[in-house]
Design a protein around this nucleic acid. Structure first.
Lengths: 122, 122
DNA sequence: TCAGATATATCAGAACTCGATATATACATC
DNA sequence: GATGTATATATCGAGTTCTGATATATCTGA
């Protein structure tokens, strides 16, 4: 079980929201499912991050009541805070993906089997 | 210019040392060169990390004097602290590489082109 | 002599991490 | 109706990490 750091969390959360609006609890479940149970983003990591994304204008939010089946329509039940990826957020996701790919590419130079500097022609 | 975080720093530093012993200043230069000038690991990130690696037994160290050309052999000149990858460090490097590859693999699930959330229907 | 490169190292304010805690509803089972 | 588990959002705080600034000292070339 790998705890995600902010960089990866941001990438992953924006990616999940690119599939459509969602809310905190569902996002944590989606991340666990999509990573085959390997990624873990707990509430204490998720909510501060979502608040940050909102402040940066990458997501927009709205509250919605969760009506229980056959519940009194006037009763106030549990609430969900929905997060929707904004156009700015989508552009940011693209940037994050690009940056991630560049990072991977650059790291490849360090992951190669320790070459004994043989022939390296250009 | 990307500042490296500890996870990546560790991977990259151990990787550089896998090519042979080196010292702090040279490692920062090697990282910059190997990453085509994109990775930056400053002194304030490098030395605490090297100390940590030493404490963990991943590297062994030794001081060596840098003799100036034609200098008095008895004069005490500038010193270098050399870092050598230990067998434990090499195993740790392998583990880091493996973990990194798994992370990449898992992240792929989130980087795939999002179905068509940019819905075209009106 | 002066500037810039080499070389190691710490400091401190800021940011981040993450288990624990708080609050509340929903639902199945006993 | 009590009990436990899942759903749902959110903050706290001790510990760790990050990073520009600072300190110290040597070497090299103009």
């Amino acid at each position: 079980m790998l705890n995600l750091k902010q960089d990866h969390s941001t990438l992953v959360v924006l990616s999940v929201l690119a599939d459509g609006p969602s809310y905190g609890y569902a996002i944590t479940k989606a991340i666990a499912a999509k990573s085959d149970g390997h990624f873990k983003l707990t509430a204490s990591g998720m909510y501060p991050l979502l608040t940050k994304l909102e402040k940066q204008g990458l997501v927009t939010t709205s509250w919605e009541e969760v009506k229980a089946e056959g519940a009194d329509p006037d009763a106030s039940g549990r609430k969900r805070k929905w997060y929707t990826l904004s156009p700015k957020g989508r552009r940011q996701l693209d940037k994050h993906i690009e940056a991630h790919k560049q990072m991977q590419h650059l790291l490849d130079n360090f992951l190669a089997p320790t070459a004994t500097a043989t022939s390296t022609n250009t």
